[in-house]
């Protein structure tokens, strides 16, 4: 622990703002920012979160994704330009992660009485009409779920707003699993972000203008909170793996941390090599409660 004596960060000089979004909470700390500037920035970020939720929510009936999940089975449905771009980006990530990152497996949030086998779901069965920018699902079990990338998308937009507003130093946590940092901690030359791990691997990310994403599987018996679907088995992932990724892009951090939870033990290094990452790790236990083959990468 270091202690520094900067008078710039005494009580009252830190702006803290928070709001609920995407079934989580966005916590923002702006050292040294004026109160009014923090308020103005907060409102812009909140507005962007609202826009994205209206686009990506699979619960809100007024959201475009929810509408697509309801209507796009065996019929073409037009897609807004912004969602089209996100879908295109997600398909790109699907390829780069050998199919582990798949936004087409949202079936687990729905109540299907029929089969949910891997052969009938996934983004590969999402049909696109490039010219008219419309999609349809080739199987009834398909449902779009942007839960693994939504936070990254909002942090990417937030980063743009920070630049526009000249914010030099800040720490933003989205539910504790998606982190955006700018500049440095008021009393250090970086933001030292650690992840509480049950294993001996306790990496500390020294973050400046960076993003980090942490993911973990859901052990058997905790299905109520299961959220990551393995597209190869089409089951919610029952391991207790923990992954962390630090990168220059929040969306890439989200995608890779999710894919690392699902990838086969020997695939982690190869998967990470496909992206421009600063740091990445994988630890925890697998489906049989055995220690996972740990992986640590640093550029």
């Amino acid at each position: 622990m270091k202690k520094a004596g900067s008078p710039a960060c005494k009580t009252g000089m830190i702006q803290y703002r928070t709001f609920a979004s995407m079934h989580s909470v966005l916590d923002m700390i702006f050292p040294g920012l004026a109160d009014k500037a923090a308020d103005a920035l907060f409102k812009k970020i909140q507005l962007e979160a609202h826009v994205l939720e209206n686009l990506l929510s699979d619960y809100d009936p007024s959201a475009e994704t929810c509408f697509l999940n309801e209507k796009a089975h065996h019929q073409w449905v037009p897609v807004s330009d912004r969602l089209w771009d996100i879908l295109t980006e997600c398909r790109h990530f699907y390829s780069l992660t050998k199919g582990y990152f798949d936004i087409g497996t949202g079936w687990h949030k729905k109540e299907f009485s029929g089969t949910t086998g891997a052969s009938v779901t996934g983004v590969r069965l999402l049909e696109s009409d490039e010219r008219q920018r419309r999609i349809r699902f080739a199987a009834p079990e398909i449902a779009l779920d942007f839960g693994a990338i939504g936070k990254g998308l909002l942090l990417r937009e937030t980063d743009k707003l920070l630049t526009q507003n000249g914010v030099e130093n800040c720490f933003i946590s989205f539910g504790g699993s998606s982190i955006l940092t700018r500049g440095h901690h008021p009393h250090g030359n970086h933001w030292p972000v650690a992840f509480r791990s049950p294993s001996d691997m306790n990496p500390v990310f020294q973050m400046n203008d960076d993003f980090a994403s942490f993911s973990q599987g859901t052990p058997e018996g905790m299905n109520a909170t299961a959220h990551i679907v393995n597209p190869y088995t089409n089951q919610t992932e029952g391991n207790f793996r923990i992954s962390g990724v630090m990168a220059g892009c929040p969306v890439i951090a989200e995608v890779v941390s999710t894919a690392l939870i699902l990838a086969l033990p020997d695939e982690a290094a190869l998967l990470a090599a496909g992206f421009r990452l600063k740091k990445a790790f994988l630890t925890g236990r697998d489906n049989t409660n055995q220690p996972v083959k740990e992986f640590y990468y640093e550029s």
Binding site: M1, K2, K3, A4, G5, S6, C9, K10, T11, I14, I29, P31, F171, S173, G176, S177, I179, H185, P186, H187, G188, W191, P192, V193, A194, F195, R196, S197, P198, V204, F214, Q216, I242
Partner: peptide, 14 residues
Amino acid sequence: IEHDIFDKITVAGS
């Protein structure tokens, strides 16, 4: 920050 301490920020996990 308020007490001029520079320590790691533990996120996620238990």
